[in-house]
Design a protein around this nucleic acid. Structure first.
Length: 428
RNA sequence: GGAGACGUGCCGGAGCGGCCGAACGGACUUCACUGCUAAUGAAGGGUCUCGUGAAAACGGGACCGGGGGUUCAAAUCCCCCCGUCUCCGCCA
């Protein structure tokens, strides 16, 4: 939810932001019109209501003889109040609908334009020089090939039991996932995050409040029998954690949520159908922070640094991109994605993402803090991936050896009982 | 799954349909008293929103789990939902 104060006082900032996102600028003017209509309607209702309150008080004080006349007069007023209230409610709803169409104000410096207009901030990794990654000196196998020979996952049986885009992680695959998650957990603990396992089924209000029923609505699994949604990320549950609260922000509140994530992948039929790159269910450790809005940008960089540290620990080649305005979710004011090199595809694929939602999400969820003047103001929220199942793809592909083994980066070895290489398991 | 009880402000806890934004405690803030702390006395409070105002303020409206309804008038009566608790049953 945008700030109505800004809507009234600095509509230009909103228009400029819409422009950079490639969203209709007219939404801003629609919302301004709806806001003033709503204020007029509320004003009418409230003055009638004030009259009604006064006349009801008179009835209460009146003697038995005076009452019938007063009540008759009040009856008429009651109907007017009812009508005015209905009108005010409608105007309020219309305003909210209009305001909801406006996305968060993009932070200065975010590249304008669509998906392809991202700006690369950095290329990094052991085989990276400049903006290119040195090729392997043998023909790379893809992660499916590698994973199957290592018996790290079982795609056929995943499909048999649950359908396409489902899989079993088996043996070393399962351990690798846990190793990544645990390494990330230790890192976030070190950085002051409180670990939490979150609910993966949430109520409609929470799904709505976090913004996932907007443009992502078709991505979300819904259980009609219980009126609950399956979360696509623990961001949902972590954002809802402090909903309707006034929290203490002397120190930022940082949580690391561990959960399974569910995504319908509705619009992506035929895309990434092979392997575990794009699946309906996976695990993720998600960072989430509540901070003073003044500190949001610094916190965003802090999250990005945690992410690059983790990728570095995995000895991966990757690039960090500043996502263009048009490719941001409606809640995000800025987003950094980190994409790892995938040799078999000769391209970069997203492993992490971190968004600064400024006060947009918190306003909708009613999460506030007391500022220096003791006023209640919405907090800023930020989220970012610490590790997901998908990292296995980059890990297998980038660390594959000519002999079919996969090297285990040093930092990950303690989480795998000291294992230094993953060995193929022959099928009898 | 069945039966019942309950949900009031930061906390506890009252509340005949009008005199209830809400008694009374406690906590908190300010002031007074005290050499300091404690104790004591006095005063003050929440949230959202609209309007006037440069602002401090002032005035209006709303908020007693949420949403509807009845009524001139609802914390109080009725309905639905959500949540908490107790008992019984069921499954582990």
């Amino acid at each position: 939810m945008i700030d109505t104060q800004i809507l009234r006082e600095q509509p230009e900032a909103l228009r400029a932001s819409q422009e950079r996102r490639g969203d209709p600028v007219s939404h801003v003017d629609d919302a301004i019109a709806a806001d003033s209509a709503r204020r007029t309607a509320i004003g009418e209702f409230e003055s009638l209501r004030a009259q009604q309150n006064a006349s009801a008080a008179q009835v209460g004080k009146a003697s038995k003889e005076e009452r019938p006349a007063l009540i008759a007069a009040a009856k008429e007023l009651a109907q007017q109040v009812k009508d005015a209230q209905a009108a005010a409610n409608d105007a309020e709803a219309a305003f909210e609908a209009a305001a909801a169409r406006i996305a968060n104000i993009v932070i200065d410096g975010v590249p304008a334009g669509g998906e392809e207009n991202f700006v690369t901030l950095e290329h990094r990794g052991p085989r990276t020089s400049g903006d290119t990654v040195a090729p392997l000196d043998f023909e790379p196998r893809d992660h499916v090939d590698l994973g199957e020979s290592l018996k790290a996952f079982d795609l056929a049986r995943g499909a048999k039991v649950s359908g396409t885009r489902f899989y079993y992680l088996t043996g070393i695959g399962m351990r690798l996932e846990l190793a990544l998650m645990n390494m990330a957990l230790d890192k976030t603990l070190d950085k002051g995050f409180t670990p939490v396992t979150t609910p993966t089924l949430v109520r409609p209000e929470i799904m709505q409040g976090t913004g996932f029923l907007g443009e992502h609505a078709s991505e979300v699994y819904y259980l009609p029998a219980d009126d609950l949604y399956l979360v696509g990320t623990s961001e949902v549950a972590l954002a809802g954690f402090h909903a309707d609260e006034i929290i203490d922000l002397e120190q930022p509140k940082r949580y690391a949520g561990w959960s399974t994530c569910y995504r319908r992948e509705a619009g992506s039929a035929g895309k990434d159908t092979r392997g575990i790159l794009r699946v309906h269910q996976f695990n993720k450790l998600e960072m989430f922070a509540y901070v003073n809005p003044a500190d949001a940008e610094a916190e965003h960089e802090r999250m990005r640094d945690i992410q690059t540290d983790l990728l570095d620990a995995c000895e991966l080649d990757y690039r960090v991109i500043d996502v263009a305005a048009g490719d941001l979710g409606s809640s995000a004011a800025r987003k950094f994605d980190i994409e790892a090199w995938v040799p078999s595809q000769g391209t970069y694929r997203e492993l992490t993402s971190t968004s600064n939602c400024t006060t947009f999400q918190a306003r909708r969820l009613k999460t506030r803090f007391k500022d220096e003047d003791g006023k209640n103001r919405p907090v800023a929220t930020l989220n970012g991936t610490a590790a997901t199942t998908r990292w296995i793809v980059a890990l297998l592909e980038q660390h594959q050896q000519a002999d079919g083994t996969v090297r285990v980066p040093e930092a990950l070895q303690p989480y795998l009982g000291g294992l230094t290489a993953l060995e193929p398991i022959p099928t009898p």
